Amino acid sequence: MDFLDVPLRTKGERSYGITSIADFGTPIALLEAYLRDYHAYIDIAKIGIGSAYVTPNLQEKINLYKKYKVIPYCGGTLFEKCYVQEKLDEYTESLQKLGIEWIEISNGTVDIPLHKRLSIIKKCKKHFNVIAEVGSKDQDKEMPLSEWEYEINLLLGAGCKYVITEGRDSGTAGIYNSNGNVNTELIERISKDIDVNKLIFEAPTPKQQMFFINQFGTNVNLGNVKINDVLVLETQRLGLRSETFFLGEKTWNLP
């Protein structure tokens, strides 16, 4: 079908309008079925938490993602585990051997000082495209609004391709409160003076995805999307769901 007036979507190798899925152990056969049908709607695949370390068919999975032009990378929890055990050199060497070209630098579980993260980013960006993450997985830990803005600016200035705003796979921490509602004051603050095209908002539920689509338009970057929700998300992006039905007037212009 190609006869409706729908919001313009970025296509191909997008620099924004990104959908980043979270892979928590999708079987290869099922993954290939999803990618065969929906790869045009997926840009990045995070092999979630530390699951990459115990995935028996990891190389096959990475190759499959790359076959369908989806960028694979490992979740920040694995990075933090390697940091704590002082195994970052072994970690980055393993990523290179696997053909993974992106790395996440986070501090969602471990409180890694900002200056230390910036130093790691400086080293890693020689060999990888770097994604950083801001925010804690601890529901009881609140960062001041000014600190969110300060960290994001420094991380982007250090050469990160994108900064992820923490939301967990449950959507109950970081930019969300414990019942899954968006901290709207925080989102308004960090989007006021920061290019939202450089932010990936973790939004694991359709309700959260719809908030960001209505707030920032069709081509907002969204992460921690479940692979079985990819088609629903694309439907939402194109104003083909009730909650985003009148999206057209908020559409961002394509370059």
Rank of each mutant, 00 (worst) to 15 (best):
N177C: 04
G76T: 01
S20G: 11
E60V: 13
K226Q: 14
Y176L: 03
D195S: 10
F201V: 02
T205I: 05
L145K: 07
S178C: 12
K66Q: 13
N183F: 13
T172E: 05
A45G: 01
D89P: 06
D169W: 13
N183Q: 13
H115A: 14
S20P: 06
A203V: 07
E151I: 07
G180T: 03
L31P: 03
A40W: 00
I49D: 10
N129L: 14
L118V: 11
I213G: 05
S146C: 12
I131G: 03
K69N: 13
F24Q: 05
D229G: 11
S15P: 00
V54Q: 13
Q209P: 02
D37K: 11
D138G: 08
H127W: 14
E104R: 06
Y53F: 15
Y34W: 03
L114H: 06
E32A: 08
S136V: 05
Y34K: 09
I120A: 01
L58W: 08
G157F: 10
M143Y: 12
G76Q: 04
I213V: 07
A33T: 05
I100E: 08
L154S: 10
D89Q: 08
L31V: 00
S136T: 12
I190T: 10
S178H: 12
N219Q: 08
L95P: 07
N221F: 06
L114S: 00
V230G: 01
L88Q: 06
T19I: 08
P255H: 10
K46T: 01
V110C: 11
Q85R: 11
I49M: 13
Q59Y: 04
T19M: 06
G17M: 02
L88R: 03
S51A: 15
N253H: 15
E90R: 15
G174D: 03
L238P: 02
L78F: 15
N129V: 14
L88E: 05
E80K: 09
T26R: 02
D37T: 07
V225C: 10
L35A: 00
S106T: 13
K116C: 05
A45R: 04
T172F: 11
K116E: 09
D5G: 08
G135F: 05
Y91V: 07
A203E: 04
L186Q: 01
L118R: 05
L156K: 00
P113T: 06
N107M: 12
L199F: 06
I42F: 10
H115Q: 13
